[in-house]
């Protein structure tokens, strides 16, 4: 498989603030790649350098085989972008704005189809300023897709989405993958990253703290956790053999007629990995 994005030794400082410090990763064509990390970790900086908005201090970058710093219109035909923030022309309707942006591309997708993908059919003739925050965000996603890009950059695309809209966005991103398109997304929703991304990188203080498939990352953590409450006290048991431990625990409880309140068995999630990585004191 060819590589859609190559980043090697990327560095970027804003004056004294070293926002990105030697980041390297690659994204294969057709992959959904997630960039995670706390506020200020350097996600937007990295993504906007890849989009060609920001300059870099050091490092080698290839996006669809081109250095974004010198890329032109032909390259922009092939990418789609959702920025972390920014608004749209408030006085246009959903359809008008998608026609306007679609017209910038040589082979745009059908506007009605894109509206359907993000679920804005009922709002299609409404002015942008009458949309709710989440609806505007869905329109952002629609605009990123209207040019039928090979590679989409989504900087916190689902922030402000209701649960249904989020599922729908996941379906959209999965369908992009089925079409062989590549997605780079940032998110603070770890369940989203876990379910959607083929691979994730966790950034902390401008460096990659972990990189891999979500299952690999969670596999590195201590095993299954069993929690329950006894006499108002929370008890947590971590074990490699959940079946045996649970069996002993419940057998004992039954024998002595005690109820294990709030009994819960959980596998470590990406969220646990994330927290263990990002809560260590920096360096």
């Amino acid at each position: 498989m060819s590589r859609a994005v190559v980043v090697e030794g990327l560095e970027k400082a804003y004056g004294e603030v070293r926002a990105v410090r030697g980041v390297s990763f690659t994204i294969e064509t057709g992959e959904v790649f997630g960039l995670l990390g706390p506020n200020g970790a350097g996600k937007t900086t990295t993504v906007e350098i890849l989009e060609g908005y920001r300059t870099r201090d050091a490092g080698r970058i290839e996006v669809l085989g081109v250095d974004p710093a010198t890329a032109g219109s032909a390259w922009r035909e092939r990418i789609g972008v959702v920025l972390q923030s920014g608004s749209l022309y408030p006085q246009l309707t959903v359809v008008e704005i998608l026609r306007l942006f679609g017209g910038y591309y040589e082979r745009p997708r059908d506007v009605g189809e894109v509206i359907g993908i993000v679920g804005l059919e009922e709002k299609k003739d409404q002015r942008v300023h009458t949309l709710s925050g989440g609806q505007k965000r869905r329109l952002d996603l629609a605009i990123a897709l209207v040019g039928d890009p090979e590679l989409v950059f989504l900087d916190e695309p689902t922030t402000g989405f209701d649960p249904e809209a989020r599922r729908r966005a996941w379906d959209t991103i999965r369908s992009l993958r089925e079409l062989g398109k590549t997605t780079l997304l940032t998110t603070h929703y770890l369940d989203e990253a876990e379910r959607l991304c083929d691979r994730v990188a966790v950034l902390r203080d401008g460096k990659i703290a972990a990189l891999g498939r979500p299952a690999e990352l969670t596999g590195a953590l201590p095993p299954t956790e069993i929690r329950y409450r006894l006499d108002g006290q929370e008890v947590v048991v971590r074990t490699e053999e959940p079946t045996r431990v649970l069996n002993e625990l419940t057998a004992e409880a039954l024998r002595s007629g005690v109820e294990l309140e709030a009994l819960e068995v959980s596998r470590p999630s990406l969220e646990d990995v994330y927290l263990s990585l990002t809560q260590e004191s920096p360096r």
Binding site: E77, G86, S87, L88, Y104
Partner: peptide
């Protein structure tokens, strides 16, 4: 300031 010009720069519109 609203980021509309920024978004336009990501499109093929010269």
């Amino acid at each position: 300031e609203e980021g509309i010009l920024k978004r336009l720069r990501a499109t093929p519109l010269p």
